[in-house]
Simulated assay, not measured.
Amino acid sequence: MNRDEVLRRVAALVDGTGATPTDAEVVTGGEICDAYRVTLDDGHTLFAKTRADSQDDFFVAEAEGLRRLHATGTVPVPRVLAADPGLLALEWIEGGSPTPEKAERLGRDLAALHATPAPHYGTAGPLYLGPVPLTTPTPAPTEPADWPAFHAEHRLLPLLRLAVDNGGISPGDTADVELLCDRIAEVAGPPQPPAHIHGDLWAGNIIWTERPHLIDPAAQGGHPEADLAFLEVSKCPHFDRLIAAYEEVRPLPGRADRAPLHLLHHVLIHAALFGGHYGPESGEVARAALVGGGAP
Results as ranks from 00 to 15, higher is better:
V6P: 03
R9H: 13
V14K: 11
G30F: 07
E31M: 08
I32W: 14
C33R: 15
D34T: 14
R37Y: 12
R37G: 03
G43D: 11
L46V: 07
L46D: 05
A48D: 06
T50C: 15
Q55D: 15
D57Y: 06
V60C: 03
R68K: 05
R68H: 10
L69V: 11
H70R: 15
P78A: 13
V80C: 08
A83T: 12
A89S: 14
W92Q: 10
G95M: 04
P98L: 13
T99W: 09
A103P: 00
A103M: 06
E104H: 03
E104W: 05
Y121N: 05
V132G: 01
P133C: 07
P139H: 04
T142P: 01
L156F: 10
P158K: 02
N166V: 05
T174S: 14
A175E: 15
A175I: 06
V177D: 00
V177S: 00
R183C: 06
E186Q: 11
V187P: 06
P190A: 11
Q192W: 03
P194R: 05
H196L: 04
I197R: 01
D200N: 12
W202Y: 13
I206S: 02
R211C: 08
P212T: 09
P217A: 11
G221F: 08
G221K: 01
L228K: 01
P237C: 13
H238A: 14
R241L: 14
I243E: 02
A245P: 00
D257K: 14
L261W: 08
G275R: 02
G283K: 11
E284H: 13
P296F: 06
